[in-house]
Nucleic acid binder design. Sequence first.
DNA 1: ACACAAAATTGATAATTATCAATAATTATT
DNA 2: AATAATTATTGATAATTATCAATTTTGTGT
Lengths: 229, 229
Amino acid sequence: MKIFSPDDENNKKLVDFLKKLGLSASEIKTVTNTEIEFKKGENVCKQGSFASYIMILKEGWLKSFVENIHFKNTVFKITKPFSIIGLSCLYGDNHYHFGCQAIMQSKVCLVERTVFDDIIRTNNKFASEIIKMYSNSLQNLYDRLNSISNKQSLSKVCDSLIYLSEKIFESDVIPPVITRRDIAELSGLATENIVRILAELKFANAISVDRKEIIILDMDMLKRFSCFG
Amino acid sequence: MKIFSPDDENNKKLVDFLKKLGLSASEIKTVTNTEIEFKKGENVCKQGSFASYIMILKEGWLKSFVENIHFKNTVFKITKPFSIIGLSCLYGDNHYHFGCQAIMQSKVCLVERTVFDDIIRTNNKFASEIIKMYSNSLQNLYDRLNSISNKQSLSKVCDSLIYLSEKIFESDVIPPVITRRDIAELSGLATENIVRILAELKFANAISVDRKEIIILDMDMLKRFSCFG
DNA sequence: ACACAAAATTGATAATTATCAATAATTATT
DNA sequence: AATAATTATTGATAATTATCAATTTTGTGT
């Protein structure tokens, strides 16, 4: 799978994405006006800080997480192009309730919250598409919460692998951009446990591992482990 | 605080609530048309089942949770009148990703998903209010996830008490309708732990306990414990 | 008020997962 | 290509929380 596309091709894809959401040419211009680049590891937004922007990921990969004061993170979403980040801040208490970090070099369009809000209020089709995203975000969060809160470590890791494969990369291959630590944070476990459980899954022929790349060989097995709890 | 109101007063409050969301008189009639009563402990919706309805809680109290196959539940929300349940099912895969149960006798208005969707598409003010609810739901879920995934038991219980006091009952008093088990499910812990931790908090004079009623005496202390992780 | 059922409580123990420490492998930098 | 820095891996141990069993308290229905 291609993780990186040249800029012009990427621009076109972004515009296509926004068109499908029902934005007009001028609205597209507005929301793609400000583009910021983030290096791997940089914070895209910081939990607790004032939420000025809604963001659109144009290029690269991000992870979104909740963090406690001891900097233990739980990742609830891996974000691929083209996705909108920060919808939960559109209304409410105006602060980010999560943090977001680039897991590789990424480009993000910043849209002022008020601008985004104006478009929603005047563009019905767009509002409707945004509501779909909210629905999906909630469903994803329920699934993550269920995995992290109600299951044991093997099932949690299987859930993370299924999530990455089916929802994010849409491939049997989970590329090296995802580290053991990312999987740990996604599963709510310590990194050392991930290593051990991946070794078990490899031994059971459910996955193969080549350096940091993970290939899912037996999705049914992962799903059985996931269900077992 | 009053948990139960006579029917006529309640009808008026429900209509007021819906008016504030921007619904017209005829729309209000549509969404309050079908009213169902649930006994304490009854399922209002079942995780995994087909999502036909969006629901409006008219009277009583509900808890929403994610459940695994061994019936271990994690509660992520206590619902009071007047709240909308099931917005996450408005689009997406058409199944409930959570379960919902009455924790006391409750009355719920059922609104067909398609009907709800139609109103959103035609009523801008309502759509905007619904988006606010989505934002709040996401923010609440991030907070719950952070508590359940990143903290230790004392902090988790404090978070649950703070949530119940500030967001749900808007009072220092957490009434007996909330059981030890509810707090356990809300905190992602076993009931026995809740008993022990409540005893600790009582000993520290952070709360007082009279049978099932919990009174918060020192909210600052709870918040310090919550932050500590 | 009585009997039954449900919920809360307490103590003891087991299971699970995190942490720590040390090393190996991989990736990034000069 | 060499070196530094990060990430992955392994084993041993500690900490946390769940589970189990027994008892008490509280709530419900007749």
